[in-house]
Computed example of a mutant assay.
Amino acid sequence: MAGIAPDFWGAVGNTPLIRLRRASEETGCEILGKAEFMNPGGSVKDRAALGILSEAVSHGLLTPFRPGTIVEGTAGNTGIGVALAANARGWKSVIVVPETQSREKIDFLRMIGADVRLVPPKPLSDPGHYVNTSRRIAEEMGAVWANQFDNHANAAAHEATTGPEIWEQTGGRVDAFTCACGTGGTLAGTGRALKARKPGVRIVLADPHGSGLFSWVKTGTVSAEGNSVTEGIGQGSKVPGNLTGAPIDDAIRISDPEALEQCFSLLSEEGLSVGGSAGLNVAAAIALARQMGPGHTIVTILCDSGARYQSKLFNPEFLRERGLPVPPWLA
């Protein structure tokens, strides 16, 4: 029957674009947010999870409703998407997460049945880094390693779905797309899809302090400075494989106060509860709109819900300890 998704897998994607009133009015542009928090797993990472698992099935590494295990290293949201998609096909999931990630995401992973392995934060060069740990566990178990950072099925999922959806929803009237990168899959895949349809569309990477991707786009060298409270975005030392050949035109760096201002105003003025990466994306879209001038249509990603960061971004003590702004209703 039309309009009925068969299961989790069929419910991912086709999220609406929401006009962001304040950002649009301030810039004279149409700034639109793709409401990825409306995916069944609650984030944009459902798309990557589905793409990666679909490819594993096509290669015979997993068979629906037969025993199988997927291992992934994640800041949380990809792990949630992987675990839920695995549940829907009768597979088990082992999710390796840095212990510094929000308590809400870790608790949710456990609630949905994932085998959660917490590890201390380590640099990527360290064998104990969560990505390296997940690869080692997958090898030891003989399980499928999702490998979201370098698995090109991640970007391919966005090229096949996110980009075409944005094109259709805007009627082709999209002048720029911007979003932050963790794995790079969203920016790379969406960028390729939009460039294929309109070569002049601008694809701009948004980056927090503490990440070296801004420097990589600007200078060709990965160089990080500062730090950020945002989770799941930015890379300090390595460019993810999904960004190889990505059609990136420019990069914008956004501070934590700028990102939080958008998180808080979207919630209090527009009824949209989003996390830090979405706040950063909206701040980048505003900065890009001011560069381009009035009359343009700019699309960005509302990655996930603010409910996953209650203990951090919406915790007055956490914010005050770091000298960050506290929203009036929590002060």
Rank of each mutant, 00 (worst) to 15 (best):
A2W: 07
G3P: 00
P6M: 09
D7H: 09
W9C: 02
T15D: 11
L17A: 12
I18S: 14
E26D: 15
I31W: 08
G33F: 00
E36M: 11
M38V: 12
N39K: 04
P40V: 03
S43N: 10
D46Y: 03
D46H: 04
A48D: 05
A48N: 06
A49H: 05
S58C: 02
H59V: 00
G60F: 06
F65G: 00
P67D: 13
G68T: 03
T69N: 05
E72V: 13
N77A: 13
N77V: 07
G79H: 12
I80C: 02
A86N: 13
R89S: 04
W91P: 01
V94M: 08
V94R: 14
S102Y: 09
R103T: 12
E104A: 01
R110M: 02
R117F: 03
V119D: 06
P120D: 07
P121A: 08
K122G: 01
P123S: 06
N132G: 08
T133V: 15
R135A: 15
E140C: 03
M141K: 15
G142M: 08
N147Q: 02
Q148D: 06
F149G: 03
F149T: 01
F149D: 07
H152W: 08
A157Y: 07
E159I: 02
P164I: 04
T170Y: 01
G171M: 12
G182V: 07
G182A: 11
K195P: 00
V201G: 06
R202N: 07
V204N: 11
L205D: 08
S211L: 12
S211R: 09
W216I: 00
V222L: 06
S223V: 09
S228G: 04
T230E: 11
E231V: 02
G232D: 04
I233M: 13
A246L: 02
I252F: 10
P257M: 12
E261C: 00
F264Y: 15
F264W: 14
L267A: 15
A285C: 12
L288Y: 12
A289E: 12
G293D: 10
P294Q: 03
S305R: 12
R308H: 14
N315D: 15
G323D: 01
L324D: 08
P325W: 09
